[in-house]
Simulated scan of single mutants.
Amino acid sequence: MRADVYDRLREDIVTGRLETGAPLTELALADRYGVSRTPIREALRRLLQDGLVERFERGMRVRGRSPEEILEIYGVRVVLEGCAARAAAENRSELDLVRIRRAATAMTETDVSDPYAMAAANRAFHEMVWAAAHNNTLLDLLSRLNDHLARYPATTLTSAGRWESAQREHEELVAAIEERRADDAASAAERHMTAARDIRLRMYAEDVH
């Protein structure tokens, strides 16, 4: 039951059903999920460790968004994506390469009028690269970082020209992984995520104003 409550509460935060800054009281959440306060307390403790909730003067709330947080998340993600790409170039199998290319092809067939489909196709591509690294620790860390970014509702892929440039950057990354050029793969992944960071910061600024 505790794992189920944690997963449900985490999903509601990541998807925005519980909005940024929303207070998280044990009593209200116990009523929302139909459980006692004990599993709620445990779920909140875990979510605090995950960085998805924060303490404030009256208890807990959904963690807020800020440009500083964007810089923090991408500062780590740029490095980890580079590590994953390097490891993928070094460790990938032929099956991994097939899966990566299939995910890249799926992106070209995605309905660009559907931002959710675009984000899902992009994540699927990155997950195939992560898997090809054959490093479970990297996979776990990158998945957690992606959950933090999911709290920012708009995908950077809707920014003018980004969908096309992202696919070009993916192709560059795939070629480096295929040819086992580890340094080039790492550099391509880092440039790709740095571009995404800059767009995310611009979108945040535009949304605030």
Rank of each mutant, 00 (worst) to 15 (best):
A131N: 05
V79N: 06
A43C: 09
R61N: 07
G59H: 13
E109N: 02
A119K: 15
A106L: 11
R45N: 08
A196W: 03
E172V: 10
D207C: 00
V98N: 03
A186Q: 09
R10D: 05
R102N: 09
E169P: 01
R162S: 06
R8I: 02
D7S: 14
E190Y: 07
H209Q: 02
R32D: 06
E54C: 02
Y33C: 04
G75E: 08
G51K: 11
R99P: 01
L24P: 03
L173N: 07
A150L: 14
A28N: 07
E178C: 01
A85G: 10
L24R: 01
D140A: 15
H209M: 02
V76S: 09
E72P: 00
A160N: 01
V14Q: 10
E69L: 14
G82Q: 05
F56H: 14
A28V: 08
S159A: 12
G59M: 11
A88E: 03
M128N: 12
L24C: 05
M60V: 12
L149N: 08
I73R: 06
H134F: 09
R144C: 11
S36P: 02
A117R: 15
I40R: 00
L97P: 03
R63M: 08
R92N: 07
M118R: 10
R63Q: 12
A89R: 01
E179A: 05
C83D: 08
A176H: 04
V129E: 05
A88L: 07
M118V: 15
L48A: 15
S36C: 02
G34P: 04
E94V: 04
D96I: 03
G64F: 04
V14K: 12
R63D: 06
V76M: 13
V112F: 05
I100P: 01
R37T: 14
N136D: 15
E94I: 03
L173K: 05
Y33S: 06
R202H: 06
E42H: 00
G34S: 06
D111V: 07
E90L: 14
S93M: 10
L47G: 02
G21D: 03
D207F: 06
A43M: 04
W163D: 00
M107L: 15
A88N: 05
R45T: 12
E171K: 11
V79R: 12
V174W: 04
D114K: 13
E178W: 07
A132S: 13
M60Y: 15
H126P: 06
L9S: 04
E109F: 09
V129L: 09
I40M: 03
I199N: 00
R32K: 13
A104V: 05
A124N: 13
N136V: 11
A124P: 06
A195H: 12
H134T: 00
G21M: 06
G59E: 10
A196Y: 02
